[in-house]
Design a protein around this nucleic acid. Structure first.
Length: 268
DNA sequence: AGGGAAACCCGAACGC
DNA sequence: TGCGTTCGGGTTTCCC
């Protein structure tokens, strides 16, 4: 899953190493990791292309090549790694790109959930994503209006990438706790003041996550050390740092959901 | 429209 | 010890 902060960390750490390099050859070790195009057209399209830039949109990593776009979604257990040559592919390596700087860029994914796209049209991959929560052009007023326009439980709504991009299970639980909103609260009952608080809480947890280079939770979900600062995620039966109430865990939309019954009382 | 569930995957962790 | 089961992550798809 890496969420926005983990992906942001990966993009930052890779940029100085791979920007400006050229792709010399490819090795696709697990065909299904390539969502598009077909394996036959993949290599001809990507070989001899230069990596002009690497950016992030939602949880997608966007490699801007000379005349095509390569997108990587890590889902839960994926990782993008750089190793020097010579290199023997590891058990969970799915795609190797040989670069002209003496290194390989490697898409590694233990659980085979992650996907890679190569396309001429970025919108085909990221066209349905909602606003970037850290974008200067995205405001609390925008969030309030969007919440008003839907009649859905807030947690699944925040996880919906077409509503807002980049939030996953961890940062959603954290943001709802900070803003004192129950995960089952219906979106259009959220007041303007609460929307302001939610907006600021989303930015707070994402920026904190980035500051700590993301979180590491499962042995396949690797990032920085933000897990040491979680307020509710993964802390069921521990005490809420704000009020001392035992943190609850329920299931919402098939997802483990952690919250404080006192700080996040369900209103309306 | 929105909720619920299944499917996609793997291996750690658990239960017996 | 060894086996079988459960779990969790993000997204898509399908069904009610």
């Amino acid at each position: 899953m890496p969420e926005l902060p983990e992906v942001e960390t990966i993009v930052r750490s890779l940029s100085s190493i791979i920007i400006g390099t050229e792709i010399l050859s490819t090795k696709l070790l697990w065909e299904k990791s390539l969502a598009a195009p077909s394996p036959e057209s993949f290599s001809p399209l990507i070989i001899n292309q230069t990596i002009e830039n690497i950016t992030r949109r939602g949880k997608y990593i966007h490699l801007h090549l000379t005349s095509v776009h390569l997108f990587v979604h890590l889902r839960m257990s994926g990782d993008l790694l750089v190793y020097p040559k010579p290199y023997t592919p590891g058990k969970h390596d799915r795609l190797l790109l040989e670069l002209n700087n003496g290194k390989y860029l490697i898409f590694n994914d233990t659980r085979k959930f992650g996907r890679v796209w190569l396309t001429l049209h970025p919108e085909d991959v990221i066209g349905n994503l909602g606003p970037e929560p850290l974008d200067q052009n995205f405001s609390a007023q925008d969030l309030f209006k969007a919440l008003q326009s839907k009649h859905r439980s807030i947690k699944p709504l925040l996880l919906d990438q077409s509503f807002i991009a980049g939030l996953g299970n961890i940062y959603t639980d954290e943001a709802l706790h900070i803003s004192g909103i129950h995960p089952l609260r219906i979106s259009d009952t959220i007041t303007y003041i609460e929307a302001l608080n939610l907006f600021s809480a989303i930015r707070t947890v994402l920026l904190e996550g980035i500051e700590h280079n993301g979180a590491s939770i499962d042995w396949v979900y690797r990032g920085g050390n933000f897990q040491n600062y979680f307020r509710v995620y993964g802390r069921e039966n521990e005490l809420c740092s704000t009020c001392g109430t035992k943190i609850s865990k329920i299931t919402v939309g098939q997802r483990g959901t952690h919250f404080c019954q006192k700080c996040q009382e369900n209103k309306i």
